[in-house]
Design a protein around this nucleic acid. Structure first.
Lengths: 221, 221
DNA sequence: CTTCTATGATCGAGTTCCGCTCGGTGAGCA
DNA sequence: TGCTCACCGAGCGGAACTCGATCATAGAAG
């Protein structure tokens, strides 16, 4: 169970998202163009002020094109969020590869860094993420739940750094993810660049919480 | 600076929420009736399926009455959230009064209990809370920010239990509030009665985090 | 204790705007 | 040269929201 398998794995395309899988090349460009537009618009006018017409106009497409690919307004936002999550996972993998973590904390820290980076650079990431909570439990793909990421991360930490795996580790990581999520969101709430005080405290909280169960960092591996 | 001053203080009526302050008696009943209806409807159909017509019908009012009091659809939800926050604060005061906390942790624990109680009993509390993150920074009343509650709580803890006050305490309490908020929301995410495992872990996280700064509980006062 | 009346409160048909559809047109592939 | 994929945008239904007509109430006047 390698790192890249866990994080970079198959893209989160759960055919329910896109109405029609594009076959020609230009249409895939359209698809990402629509999402780019949605990301920008959502940053400008907010999550529930966004209209499909705005997205279409910003993307240089017609309203019909939007609905060719997405069944409804929310689906566009969901797709935007899926892409952001995908990019987040990819970013984590890149960070892990380039930095070569030596302890379990290094790995967790990479995830924080990746998250902060995306908040800073990825248009629409902030608002889409905020809306995350509202999703109905019926929503199809489970890969977007915080629990999914927690499970993946648990696999890595158990495999690579010898942490004792199992449901307890998963549970604690899920708690950790929720905490980090909220504190980091708070960091970006008023400061578009992220309030370093909250970011630092987030790292501290995560480290202390996990170290309380799995011992000081140096002791592992 | 007494407890009731801090928490139970002036109601969160910041004239921007309501278009016209009601003067007659029946209209105040209408207002709360509208919010009651909105709370029920929001529990039934969800946050973004709710329509102003549904709220009006459920409240036995006409559509025009809704717009007499609230400028738009979102304002109704915001008002619902304001009332829920107000009731939360009131509940905390009640709990504190009846239980007579002896340590700072007892006081914090009261807040958790009140929050959980509201999640369980207050219609609409869950969904309204989910939407909480989305609020625009321009939004008027600051009394609803998590920071406000953190400041109030900091006053109580410093005054009553001798914790060293100031910006550091406020900051840590704000972090605490964010953490608790997210973990408790997670507890109710799939379990309408609240997953006790997450609730217990929430308490543990809060206690450990604050105790790390302000010493073990028994040592205070 | 009654009118009487000014004003608050309510109503709901109508307007506007937005999500979404669908038949017709253009662009790329065989 | 067809044939299918991609695109367009006028139009439909419904939801958000307005506004002038109508009713209810508080409080003054008698």
């Amino acid at each position: 169970m390698s790192l890249s398998d866990l994080f970079g794995g198959d893209p989160v395309v759960s055919g329910q998202q896109v109405r029609i899988e594009p076959t020609q090349q230009r249409s895939t460009a359209r698809l990402s163009g629509l999402l780019d537009a949605a990301a920008v618009v959502v940053d400008e006018v907010g999550f529930d002020r966004i209209t499909t017409a705005m997205v279409a106009e910003r993307a240089g497409a017609s309203i019909g094109t939007v609905y060719r690919y997405y069944p409804d307004r929310v689906a566009v936002l969901q797709a935007l969020r899926e892409r952001a999550v995908l990019r987040f996972r990819q970013r984590v993998v890149d960070q892990l590869r380039s930095s070569g973590p030596e302890t379990w904390w290094d790995a967790v820290d990479c995830a924080v860094t990746a998250f902060v980076d995306l908040y800073r650079t990825e248009p629409g990431f902030r608002i889409v993420h905020f809306a995350d909570r509202e999703r109905t439990p019926i929503s199809g793909s489970e890969e977007l739940e915080s629990g999914y990421f927690a499970r993946q991360l648990a696999g890595v930490l158990a495999e690579e750094f010898g942490l004792h795996g199992g449901p307890d580790l998963i549970f604690r990581l899920e708690v950790t993810v929720e905490m980090a999520d909220s504190i980091l969101s708070r960091a970006f709430h008023s400061d578009p660049n992220g309030d370093d005080r909250f970011i630092a405290e987030c790292r501290r909280v995560m480290r202390d919480y996990l170290a309380g169960y799995y011992g000081p960092i140096a002791a592992t591996v």
